[in-house]
Computed example of a mutant assay.
Amino acid sequence: MTDRHVTTRETGKHARRAAILQAAETLIRRSGSTDFSMQELAAESQLSLATTYNLIGGKSTVLYALLNLRADHAHIALDMRPDTDPRERVFTCAREVVRQFTGDPLFYRPLMRFLLGVPDPVHHPAFMARGLEHWCVVMDALERAGGLPQGTHAREVANFVHLFLTGALDMWVHEEYDEARLLHELERYLTVLLFPVTASKPSTKKVRRT
C-alpha cells in the first residue's frame, strides 16, 4: 500500500471521527442533555453503529473527546511574559476558565453533568491531569516570583485550586451557582489561599499597673 493510500485512509478516518464529535455536540444542543444513545449518535453522524464504535469507542469516550476538543479550541491564553505580574495572571486565568464554561451553558452544563457523574477510570484521570497541568504553569511562575505562601509549592497549590474549581463547577453545573457566584467563589478562594492573613502574635509587653 502506498503512502498516498495510507494518507487518504487516515484523512477519511479523521473526517468520520470529526463527524461523530459534531453529531454529539448537535445532539447535546438539540436536547439540552447527553441522554442520547449510540444508535442515535451513529444516525446523526450518518455512519453505521459498528463504524462509530470502531472509530471512537463508547459514549463516555465520545464525550471526553468532545470536551478535550473544545478545550483545545478555547485558547485560554496565559500571558507568560516576564513583565506580567504573576499574581494578576492567576486571577486572569480564573476569569478565563469561568468564561469558557459559563459562556456556553447549553453545551457545558449537560456535558459536565455527565462527565462529573459517571466513573471513568481512563478518561477522567487524564482530563483532570490536563486541568492540573494548566494551573501548574500559572503557579510555577508565581513560585519563581516568590509569591506563594511560605512552605508551599506550585504543584501543591495548583492541586488545591484545581480540586476547588472542580467542586465549584459542579455547583454551577447543577445551577446552584450562576456565573457571578462561580467567579466570586473562585476568586475568594484564590485570595485566601495565596494571601493568608497572618495572625498577630500575642503581645508580650508588660502592662504597667497604676
Rank of each mutant, 00 (worst) to 15 (best):
T7D: 04
E187M: 09
D178V: 09
L132I: 04
T84L: 11
T51H: 01
L163V: 15
L132C: 03
S203P: 02
V161M: 15
R4Y: 03
L47V: 02
E25V: 03
L67V: 06
R4P: 00
M112T: 02
E25Y: 01
T61M: 06
H73K: 09
T191N: 07
F91M: 10
H14R: 15
L111E: 02
R17L: 11
P196A: 09
L193V: 13
M38V: 12
I20N: 01
P196Y: 08
D3W: 08
M171Q: 14
V137N: 05
P119I: 08
R130I: 02
A71I: 13
L163Q: 12
A18R: 07
P110A: 06
G103C: 11
V62N: 01
Q39I: 12
M139L: 15
V97G: 02
L66A: 06
W135D: 12
Y53K: 10
R9T: 07
H124R: 14
T52K: 05
G147C: 09
A158N: 07
L55G: 03
D83W: 10
A74D: 05
Y189K: 01
S203Q: 03
L69P: 00
F195C: 08
Q39A: 15
E176A: 11
G147D: 07
G58S: 06
A71C: 08
R87A: 13
V62Y: 02
T2L: 09
H134A: 13
E44M: 10
P121G: 12
L66S: 04
T102C: 15
L21Q: 02
E179Q: 15
L66N: 02
R155Q: 14
L163K: 05
R17P: 00
E25A: 14
D3S: 06
F127N: 08
L49E: 03
H73V: 01
Q150L: 12
N159Y: 10
A199F: 03
